[in-house]
């Protein structure tokens, strides 16, 4: 290897180190990934169905059948057999005239009223409750049994919030900026019976980072103003107890 070759070797090595260095120091790097222009949209099926689904259809059927099955074994257990048999026989007579529209539910109640003992008081109380408002149907039936009513109230409230959203959406403009889409403002609204606003309370804000710190006040303010501008709300007046205070309603970038 003579001098010329050694020089060439040094030159080639230097060139390779230079190229490797350029690549490693990220002087030549692929172009950064472009952000996706249309981020995937969250679809919520509740907002599409809103008010209709909340109606508690199943309640009259659900509340009525359990009554006989619940009462009958207890009556047999406590009362002596002949008495139960007599009660059964007696019960058959006054039935039809008492309540033609709900025979299933009233039959055990009336029969149990003829039983004696501590159980009888309870049963008669239950019977009174059921027989006191026989004609009003759905609403009282829902109040009579605990769990369907609670579920119904929650469903109703959710549907009222959806109704609120559909009115507010038009006025809601989320602030834009760095990390603005992470901000969420939770608001509780209390309403007057005529659908106008009594109070607006900002409960909490989530998704606050150091980048959107300056936006959170604007976010809450715009949320409140959107509610104010959307008022008054048209909500069924008979459920005022439920929609008197709604929330916490979460305001995010896309209200739904």
């Amino acid at each position: 290897m003579d001098r010329a070759e050694r020089t060439a070797l040094a030159l080639a090595g230097f060139g390779h180190v230079l190229l490797l260095g350029a690549l490693s120091l990220s002087l030549i790097r692929p172009a950064p990934k472009l952000p996706t222009l249309n981020p995937p949209i969250e679809v919520d099926l509740v907002s599409a169905t809103a008010l209709q689904t909340a109606a508690p259809d199943a309640v009259p059927e659900a509340s009525a059948p359990p009554a006989p099955s619940e009462v009958e074994p207890m009556a047999d257990a406590v009362a002596p057999p002949p008495m139960a048999a007599k009660a059964k026989a007696d019960a058959k007579v006054p039935d039809p005239k008492a309540k033609p529209q709900k025979p299933e539910a009233t039959k055990p109640a009336q029969r149990s009223s003829r039983l004696d003992g501590s159980l009888m008081a309870q049963l008669s109380k239950a019977a009174n409750r059921e027989t006191s408002t026989p004609g009003t149907g759905r609403g009282t039936a829902a109040q009579g049994s605990g769990t369907p009513a609670a579920r119904t109230a929650a469903q109703l409230e959710a549907s009222f919030i959806q109704a609120l959203f559909s009115q507010i959406k038009r006025y809601w403009r989320a602030p834009t900026g760095v990390d603005a889409e992470l901000l969420r403002t939770n608001i509780i609204v209390t309403l007057k019976p005529d659908g106008s606003i009594a109070t607006i309370t900002v409960v909490s804000q989530t998704g606050v980072t150091e980048n959107n710190e300056n936006l959170k006040a604007i976010h809450a303010e715009r949320a409140a103003s959107a509610i104010r501008r959307a008022a008054p709300f048209q909500l069924p007046p008979e459920h005022y107890a439920i929609w008197q205070s709604l929330g916490p309603i979460t305001f995010d970038k896309r209200l739904n």
Partner: peptide, 13 residues
């Protein structure tokens, strides 16, 4: 690769 380029440079010269 380094050797190749060394040969290329020296030989071309």
């Amino acid at each position: 690769s380094i050797w190749t380029w060394a040969i290329i440079i020296s030989h071309a010269r």
